[in-house]
Design a protein around this nucleic acid. Structure first.
Lengths: 179, 179
DNA sequence: AGGTACATGTAAGCTGTTACATGATTTT
DNA sequence: AAAATCATGTAACAGCTTACATGTACCT
């Protein structure tokens, strides 16, 4: 999904500034499957504004002077709708981690072990964080995505836990050949 | 992972032409987490060749006249090693499907239902295909990645199966508001 | 006084996608 | 004879990342 659509999605939920949109991608419920830096968000907001899909809104009275808050327009909601409807199926797992592990026989066992431990810690952290926000009320879609993410993270964590010794052990055996 | 590294990975397993590398990404065991079209593969091979990371190898005697087979060089193996070692953690799920579903309340229930059914069919197909190739012998890394992919697909399929009615039902309830 | 968080933006460069352009060989 | 598969490549464009450039406000 391009950054423009990502921004429209955030703005469909609430008015926000570029800075706040970034925070959504880093912390909010969208953070697990979105990403964008300032370098893409600000140009995207400018384009969206030029196209009339978002408009400047009033910032709070105690906001910084340079803060610019945007609000989605009806045309913007329609554009978001179109983009969501266009979404075709089939995204791959596209993962550098998977790719690297596929070539486990080329890597030092200690490195593999560290990679697996780090990834496991990441998943556990994400799971804990996601379990923590079950209290809040969520829309059906949000809840579904939350649950699906959690299910995937749990399955991945459990699999790594169970099988990490195999891949590190296998690498130990073929170590001399690889080097 | 950039296309150059993807190509090095394929070539670390066997000599291949650009066309054959593409097939690996479409069908082979790497296909679930890699992707690249001709438009990126051929330029990548040219660059790798210029950098001395791969070299032209002899094509079979009954190969087409324009076929170019490449072989990875020792420098290429080293570059692959460096790239795999550099791999940092933390890839997100980055999924258009997840993003779209997050906004389920904005979409027609029939569309949601179709999206979910298609995705479920995709997962089931992938699972079947992956279960089918369990007979072949695999290196430890390949086996691990295969198992992890399977675990993730199974978890996702099971979750969608169990919860698809909730998200479609939820959308039915808020349908009028969204439209 | 210094660090962190807030706040916005530009510009260069890299990468990848899409569409185009071409042609041989095998299968139906 | 037509269609599918094999086979390679270029060029224009779109998009994102990184680094840079700037400045305010709050907390310690």
């Amino acid at each position: 999904m391009d950054v423009k659509t990502l921004c429209l999605g955030v703005l469909s939920r609430a008015d926000a500034s570029g800075y706040e949109i970034r925070k959504e991608f880093e912390e909010g419920p969208l953070s697990h499957f979105c990403d964008a830096g300032f370098g893409s968000i600000y140009p995207a907001l400018k384009k969206l504004s030029d196209e009339g899909l978002i408009a400047a809104a009033a910032a709070g009275p105690d906001a910084r002077p340079d803060k610019k808050v945007y609000r989605i327009t009806p045309a913007g909601r329609h554009a978001l709708y179109q983009a969501l409807m266009r979404t075709p199926g089939g995204d791959k797992l596209r993962s550098d981690f998977m790719f690297a592990l596929f070539f486990a026989h080329l890597l030092p066992p200690a490195h593999l072990d560290r990679m697996l431990a780090e990834r496991l810690a990441d998943y556990r952290g994400a799971i804990q964080e996601m379990e923590g926000c079950c209290g809040q009320p969520m829309a059906a879609g949000e809840k579904f995505v939350h649950g699906l993410g959690l299910a995937i993270y749990r399955a991945a964590a459990a699999y790594i836990e169970e099988h990490r010794h195999e891949v590190v052990g296998g690498a130990l055996l073929t170590q001399r050949v690889a080097e």
